[in-house]
Design a protein around this nucleic acid. Structure first.
Lengths: 237, 237, 237, 237
DNA sequence: AGCTAAACGAGACGGTACGTCGCGTCTTCAA
DNA sequence: TTGAAGACGCGACGTACCGTCTCGTTTAGCT
């Protein structure tokens, strides 16, 4: 995954990018060694497995997806799956990270609008059946299995963070970011409330929520448009 | 659970209150009928089950706790468990809601301090092995099982929300809450970032985090101390 | 199994005796304890399993019979099988010992005829698809698994031996058995050649074989008819 | 294998004769074509496979020996094995037939002694861990797989039979064999009881058993020493 | 010396069966 | 009617081997 790709981020259900990160998750050793002995892994099997996983994830939800069902649907032996992924978690992460995409990078020149676009994409992702129905199950596995937590952070969280950092970088370049701003906290406070609603309260996620959160963040962190003007001030309280 | 109890809230690992909410979750039918025919339910079995659940939850984590193991450890038949709880979720909720406690209500007269105290209690709860190791699993079940989601919201979320509302009520009475403030959003933006860190990023949770979040919230929502003075302004950015 | 039953012996495909030895093999603890706690084993499941085993044994042969297939055909969970039998071997032994039957005891008063009848029954059993197709597989398992060898000897070999001993007892009573005769060796030399042919050479087994073997045994062991006359002498060499 | 070799027979654990029958079983096509194109089969691989098979056979027993384990221990690809043997059976037969050896031909001039020597060799073979632990498994495969039964009869049974026939031939030449004697039956009745004990009853095999069996056979078949005298008559009954 | 073709090690592949675990329900006997 | 005990049908687990199939790499004999 190139730098540009990372900057573009992901996290919204979008276009499928065949084989992009496949090697990273499912075939770690294949990347470096120029020629391992023995028959090489079959790329078609890899695709079939990931596709089957996506299908089942969408139609059944994480908890009900079984390795057995994935194997059956992919027309593949179970061993072929276990050979590539240690458990359901990493496989699912690879599957959804192919589909999570934050959409094209938006650069409006206005940090409020940029943040709103970013957060709306996050909201859209968490509201989608695929991601929304998968995250809760993944958090479960992540809690006790580092083999799930690691890839999830690398392939889902990191790109999201990178996307936000790009926005903040531009804002800083325009002089709209107070010196010493805790950039990580901005991410936490933008995305956290959405996660809270998605997982815990079950409240409906919509674009308005994103706007309101951004409003408070802009004021709370004293972020300003490029020209240094004070923000117009949200009418929402 | 009385009004006072609710206002007191919960969410910090604390003292065990035997039999407090047990009847609500585990024994709904027992509440009404004053004298049912046949042998009455054995309260000791109830306690043994809940205690076993707490023990296993702490030592193994939600995902690895099974009804079978609980029954074995409690020295109880599985039927006896299913007679009281429809599934693992509600039982676990009862078990942890006994232990979750937000501590005594703090009233400093300063909304910033009140909020910080509140959020620190939340942080402490999510950082504890019991709650921290259980929430992720519960979110999984909540997503697909209303019988888990309902009780969780009633017994864990609602008291937390009530506690915050009490703080905001007092602030409003002192004139420190701008009219039209979205009180629900305050809860989301206070607790959400902590949840995000606990479940997703795995970043360490500490009291400093709570302070920083409160800082931004106070500024973002334009909250003021009782006398109407503007807040001193946090040094943290 | 009563004494009379034992004396009758078995080893020829014959009538099914429902539930006769079932408790001995599949439900060892049930025999003595008057009332074990918990739900008792289901006798219908037991029968269904044994019946399915017999069916598959006949149609596929020992090697191709799997626990999974038995469970499926019996409409039973695999655990239900493993709860009663430690492995395929003992189950198969129970199944065939129900069907192995040496037929009614023959008492002609002539030891030659008695032995011939006995050996013909053995030949018939080993020539049948059920027993003939099962013994080789069982010998395999017996060699390394005492849980197979024990029951096989108890339920298949012992009755056969008992049947022969009854014949020899009668002969001895008539004075037709030289003193000091090695009775065990008679069994070995009667049945051994038949087993050798069945398992190793694959030569066809027929009634003539039994006659010829008995001929040589009678002469070799100097067995005589009741009246003490010397045997007429077989024409076969 | 030459005629002399066959007459010598086998069936007792003995000296290893490298490469004797290897070509017959493992490399059938190599025998005729004087020069096939391509890389020739590697004789070291052949040996390594057979050696590994013998080792595993001795230490684990037929049933637990897998092609995979043989390949691993021989440091050889599975393909290399399947290229030479169609399945485990023929390979095992080749392995044990290397080790089975009836010892040097004995010619005492006394048929009783010749037969006893012969049968003692058979007993020794079946009592050895290698052969004794392998035969039961082989009988299983033989029952359903002609590719196992054929070679077994050719390489194990036939030499044994030939050895016995040579003894009988000599006896006949001395006039000690009644005309019309069923020579095959003698083999059956000599070896059968030993097999029966080895596979079924598990009774200990010893030299005494061989003596007793021969005793009864000599009397039963009316075999005589060269000079036509009646046998001395065994004291054993 | 180069070419061809099979053999070789390694190991991936689609399968089948294994024996185990936990589910939620049921059936027994004893309070 | 409750309770402990445990059997029941079921579904999935992760593993072991099967026999087959690629791979890249020898290793010969024949040009």
């Amino acid at each position: 995954m190139g730098r540009a790709d990372e900057a573009e981020g992901n996290l919204a259900p979008g276009n499928l990018r065949p084989g992009s990160q496949a090697e990273r998750l499912g075939d770690p050793p294949a990347t470096e060694s120029p020629a391992r002995p023995g028959r090489p892994r079959d790329a078609r099997a890899h695709r079939a497995i990931v596709d089957a996983t996506i299908h089942l994830l969408t139609s059944q939800g994480y908890a009900k997806v079984t390795i057995e069902a994935i194997a059956a649907r992919a027309g593949v032996g179970k061993t072929t799956i276990y050979r590539r992924w240690s458990s359901k978690g990493p496989l699912v992460i690879e599957a959804i990270s192919e589909l999570i995409h934050l959409g094209p990078m938006v650069d409006t020149g206005d940090i409020r609008k940029d943040l709103a676009a970013f957060l709306k994409a996050v909201v859209a992702a968490l509201a989608s059946p695929l991601v929304g129905g998968t995250i809760p199950g993944l958090t479960n596995d992540m809690a006790f299995d580092p083999e799930v937590a690691g890839p999830f952070r690398d392939f889902v969280v990191a790109p999201t963070r990178a996307r936000l950092q790009a926005i903040l970088d531009r804002a800083a370049a325009r002089g709209g970011l107070p010196p010493g701003t805790d950039r990580e906290l901005i991410l936490d406070m933008l995305v956290g409330p959405v996660l809270w609603r998605a997982l815990i309260t079950g409240t409906r996620l919509d674009a308005g929520l994103a706007e309101h959160i951004v409003d408070k963040i802009v004021r709370g962190f004293d972020l300003r448009p490029a020209n240094g003007h004070l923000p117009a001030g949200g009418s929402h309280n």
